[in-house]
Amino acid sequence: MPLSTQSQSESDEYILVASLDNARNLSNILKAISFKDHAIFNATQNGLKVTVEDSKCLQANAFIQADIFQEFTIRQDVIGFQVNLTVLLDCLTIFGGSTVPGVSTALRMCYIGYGYPLTLFLEEAGVVTVCKINTQEPEEPLDFDFCSTNVTNKVILQSDSLKEAFSELDMTSEVLQLTMSPSHPYFRLSTFGNSGNAHYDYPKDSDMMELFQCTKTQKNRYKMSLLKPSTKALGLSCKVSVRTDSRGFLSLQYLVRNDDGQICFVEYYCCPDEEVDEE
């Protein structure tokens, strides 16, 4: 098969080779962060981290551990490049992204190095497509300096309970206000839209609440437009950890289980909106 001989002969040149039996395991998780075109790829021995940012206020990271891939070979400590995520997703689903069991697209993703395109070999039912996506100079991702020691409040919820709330959120509201408190209302999502306001309260002893660690009452507002993309990640996930730090920065960590039952993580950081004035 010409493909295999070609990849064999060139495999020495590649500084990064990652193979997947099912490209959906990658495309699904990338969809959860695809709200902007530019995605910064960062590969290490541990795996792949893909970062997308918006307005210097929002950052989303998808982590795909090395063991998710059937083959993950890296010849440098750190490899960084930037590609157009929309194009990459189009390529990954070039065979239509069928969800029929038993039909999957196999992927081999290769990168020669700085200045070279990212090469994708995609195969489904004996048909092979080779895609070359030009890479760009990687930008330095924002450092949100969100460290666990500064976390004031943290809850872990089953995603199902938040999915409903997020699907119903009043999108005419410019902000989503998050209240976390050791006392009532414990965990509250609020919107302030054209037709009035709405509050969603989760008691701390709810079955849906896996962990509740709130030390201080915090009420922060986040731009709805910034949080909207995170619903994609929420939809895929089974659990979500919501944390805020002393500055009011928000961290949303989603635990995503892929088709093969393996676990990946998607993380969103969001800056708070201006100071909250009491209603």
């Binding site: 037709s195 969603y200 008691p203």
Partner: peptide, 11 residues
């Protein structure tokens, strides 16, 4: 269910 409380204040 699960104690979730949704409050809508409509004008």
């Amino acid at each position: 269910k699960h104690g979730l409380l949704k409050t809508h204040n409509l004008s």
